[in-house]
Nucleic acid binder design. Structure first.
Lengths: 237, 237
DNA sequence: GATTATAATTTGTATATACATGTTTTGCAA
DNA sequence: TTGCAAAACATGTATATACAAATTATAATC
């Protein structure tokens, strides 16, 4: 947290989550926030823009920054969230089973990730158990030239934490697709399907800050346990 | 288009879509764009931020604004898009059937929309036919105090166009949820389910710029025809 | 007291400057 | 030619000012 406006953003998020500012009410004016954080108005406005983009406030001209009601609608899976972050927030007991951790050559995935056809990729297959049921199957492909070493222990805890904090890679954005597909033999092997014959599939291409594509993930969910929640601003045509 | 930075944004989007700037390459530098659009750097940066937020570019410090490849991954249903906008973009033949257009009192929906319990809501039920199959069932509830008049003709063409362009309401943001649920009798009545016993349900709460909740929508899709595509930036913890 | 006009408040846009930080190019020296 | 240092270039952050536009509070008038 070295940037002033990011720090102010986190401060305000914390205040809103604590209930300091009630939903429907307004934040202090930009002028007041300038005084409180001892900074310029443009810096405050950058922080407020972050709040606005993430669905915490709606700025209304002449009125102020109206605090939005996030509780009415829970936000467990918005943005780019890893399974561990999700479980932490839900506070449920969960378990991760690592079924495969190998170096493979898959031309099709390589093409998608814009890397050399012959280069190696880490393939990680994990199932997620929540409340005693294995309901999510995650298949990850990572570029081995960017993530040289990977252990079962890392796969068991959190890939993202290792990649960001240990390797220092800057995970920046992702393109994702959600579709519904028939179950595969793999799904039947690793999941407690409970009679379901279809799964919700989230395919993600994950990129670093320098636009390098470095990961492809296929996350397969049992339909009755799947939920995706999103906050979207309308971009005027 | 009265705002300079919004206009510049649209200009650059058009250029990117025309292929003026190839994916993987960079846009002209901020300095050059200042000269071309005869404006200040901050104004250019506001336009570039819009491009970044919408997945057109990735800014890399010291390098420039790298153009992202949107074609590799189609973007039909990102953000807040109405069915008509979607169909227009896909260019497929489609048809809308209006099954119901009535004024109702539904306390549960009223509470969700923060309006008087006894007030009237427009209820609009429509099915969407693409390629000869009815695959989407849309149920809309709109506050009658905000949308006084509604005709079958409007429901048949585009609600959003009418609301934004004719009524001048400022649709600003939405909270949406995607889940999978068993089919209902209504689904079976209005959709060609083709043997499917589950549907993908998108529930949306739509808000105006002044944070007024004014619409609740439930969009029910046949699973094999459903696709949701999203661009997400990672917000650092 | 109610309505209207005015002023104060609040956010939106546009512009300008200074410096920091990362990348690329250039040029000098070995 | 190669290698390294310096300069040039590109984006990031912080600050400042001026004015526009919408809302709210205040004062004045009938």
């Amino acid at each position: 947290m070295k940037n002033k406006y990011v720090e102010i953003y986190h401060n305000l998020v914390k205040d809103i989550q604590k209930g300091e500012y009630a939903a429907g009410g307004t934040l202090p004016s930009e002028h007041e926030l300038c005084a409180r954080f001892e900074t310029s108005r443009e810096t405050i406005r950058k922080a407020l823009n972050l709040l606005s983009q993430n669905g915490y406030i709606q700025k209304v001209r002449g009125k102020g920054s109206v605090v939005l009601d996030r509780d009415k609608f829970e936000f467990p899976v918005s943005g780019l969230t890893s399974f561990k972050e999700l479980s932490d927030r839900l506070g449920q007991s969960f378990q991760t089973h690592v079924h495969e951790l190998t170096l493979v050559k898959e031309a099709k995935v390589c093409r998608q990730l814009n890397c050399q056809e012959g280069s190696y990729l880490w393939k990680v297959v994990r199932s997620r158990e929540i409340g005693g049921e294995r309901i999510i199957l995650d298949k990850d492909y990572l570029r081995q030239d960017l993530v040289p070493d990977l252990t079962k222990d890392i796969a068991q805890t959190s890939l993202y934490h290792y990649i960001e904090n240990e390797l220092g890679l800057d995970i920046s954005f992702a393109k994702k697709e959600i579709v519904v597909e028939p179950v595969t033999a793999e799904d039947e092997e690793f999941l407690d399907l409970n009679g379901h014959d279809q799964v919700v599939v989230i395919r993600s291409y994950v990129y670093l800050g320098d636009t390098t594509a470095f990961q492809f993930t296929e996350s397969r969910h049992r339909p009755d346990k799947f939920q995706f929640v999103d906050f979207a601003r309308r971009t005027k045509v």
